[in-house]
Nucleic acid binder design. Structure first.
Lengths: 318, 318
DNA sequence: TTGAAAGCGCTAACAT
DNA sequence: ATGTTAGCGCTTTCAA
């Protein structure tokens, strides 16, 4: 319509070369009139680059992940990448689908926040796609990760309770295969053993990260007559659930029972009393995860990164 | 490598036509050996279809939106579409970028949960892309929406308070341009006027959907000596913030002050006392939003949909 | 400064 | 049942 070649149109629209002013004007005018919209599939196919990074996570409503995503997004923006989030609800089939999307070039890379994939599967797919793990991970040769030292973090939290004179610490974990669940339990046991306290399997409860379920479990546990003087839960929601159950049984926090949660999410300061909890540098984690991915995309072979955690002391465990 | 044409390879990999067993075997074998992965950019370019639907929302950690997304995802799956979430944090520039992605064919369509775009901008972009609004919306000729009757829902909630004998209802809203904010305020005013109660601008507080900010605001409001006998907040988090402030001032809920929230999110039953709140059929909303989009993608001109809401009565307002 | 033409990887129409 | 070929929409060499 502007009587020029497609090449010239491309040059005008992308400003990749200088084009005479009148032609430029004609092209833009024609584009406007035709309501022309470029087709990214063609462009990306040709350039072998989409500028899109996928972020895979289980649940959207997870303020921890949300903050990590913020970190990723900010850093991605600096490098001209856009991110899109894939929610798997922990279903392996969905994971496969989204991983397939990046393997098959609809996106340039992926940051995985919590995957159910085994180290082998992860490694296999990493041969075909640029993947970085963040927060949760599985030790895999070619899939780098950024995380905290979960074991040390849990140990620090439990030591805090022990130094406050607590001797029977109820551990509320999750019986899944996530590395954080595993390492935090390890940290709990290490804290005990370092201070000469016995590990009592009767002081271990498994829940599902949630508030309601944990509340019920702790409620039942108390009704069964079990006793303890502190709680370490590997999520704030579970800690909050425990607090509710304790209150129902006339126990006060922190006087009777001290409670520590994990992640320093919003709920930690929304419950009464506000929760002492372990905080992770989520935004920094996201930022680093993207940096690592970026390095990978540019042919580098990045190292894993361990970031520092911090114990936030509030009322539930002075 | 398998000594066959690319067409045959395509047929084997997509199972689109019958291929002799030995050739099939040879192709699969070669593909495996070469570590072949199909390139979706090529395929999608050719087929003018990506099978991807974008869902645009402001914040990830919004359990309301999250449930809507679940509804969308379930329905999308049935029709062989995959969804990806775009978080804008309410920034128009980000909205533009993601809208551009669908306009430029990297995705087949988009469901917008809360956009800052004006009706005109929305309408303009809808000429180039299949877009459906969900929950929040702006009345636009060619961009259908699914939502509840926000005005009626707010009116129902306030009437509940009025029928309980409450006469001075504090309205806690958000001063933004979202249709829900606007309509819920309208509903509040209608309830008052239907029952012969005056509208008092001094009984209106604007916050930001959040817990902390609302708590502070209500705290200050009470310190200033204002009185009221009920609260209607347009989000559960704000209602929860109000409850905290009330407690701090020695007021009991529901005896002294009845409180009603909105959305029936998790927090509604996690606070003490559990909140009476307006529930929306989030999953159904998502499902319908996808159905409408699907209809659009197949050349239909779908109508807007209004779904029913429900008042969930808990302890905070009997 | 502009155009012609090749080709990114794929599928589908057509031919055999 | 299989191959040939055109073409999706774009960018980028190469040539003029």
């Amino acid at each position: 319509m502007a009587n020029v070649s497609v090449a010239t149109v491309s040059r005008v629209l992308n400003k990749t070369r200088h084009v005479s002013e009148e032609i430029e004007k004609a092209v833009l005018e024609a584009a406007r009139e035709l309501g022309y919209t470029p087709n990214l599939l063609g462009k990306n196919l040709r350039q072998k680059r989409t500028g899109i990074i996928l972020v895979m996570m289980s649940t959207l409503t997870n303020s921890f992940c949300s903050k990590v995503v913020t970190g990723i997004a900010n850093e991605a923006e600096k490098h001209n990448y856009h991110i899109m989030i894939c929610a798997t609800n922990g279903l392996p089939e969905k994971e496969k689908i989204y991983l397939g999307l990046v393997k098959n070039r609809m996106a340039d890379g992926m940051i995985v926040l919590n995957s159910t994939l085994s180290a082998d599967e992860m490694s296999l797919i990493s041969n075909h796609a640029a993947i970085v793990q963040c927060s949760e991970y599985t030790a895999s040769e070619n899939t780098p990760f950024v995380s905290i030292d979960n074991g040390l973090a849990a140990k620090d939290a439990c030591e805090h309770l022990i130094l406050n004179g607590r001797k029977r610490i109820l551990f509320i974990g999750v019986d899944n295969s996530l590395i954080s669940s595993h390492l935090r339990m390890e940290g709990y046991r290490q804290a005990l053993s370092c201070h000469g306290l016995p590990f009592d399997p009767g002081l271990v409860l498994y829940s599902n990260y949630g508030y309601r379920n944990t509340m019920r479990m702790v409620d039942r546990y108390l009704e069964e007559g079990h006793t303890f003087d502190a709680v370490f839960a590997i999520s704030d929601r579970m800690a909050a659930g425990a607090v509710s159950a304790l209150r129902k049984h006339g126990l006060t926090v922190p006087e009777d029972i001290e409670v520590i949660g994990f992640d320093n999410t919003d709920i930690a300061y929304m419950v009464e009393p506000p929760l002492t909890t372990v905080s992770q540098p989520q935004t920094e984690m996201g930022k680093r995860a993207f940096s690592i991915l970026y390095e990978k995309l540019n042919g580098g072979e990045p190292e894993n990164v361990i970031l520092p955690h911090k114990l936030i002391v509030r009322k539930s465990a002075k």
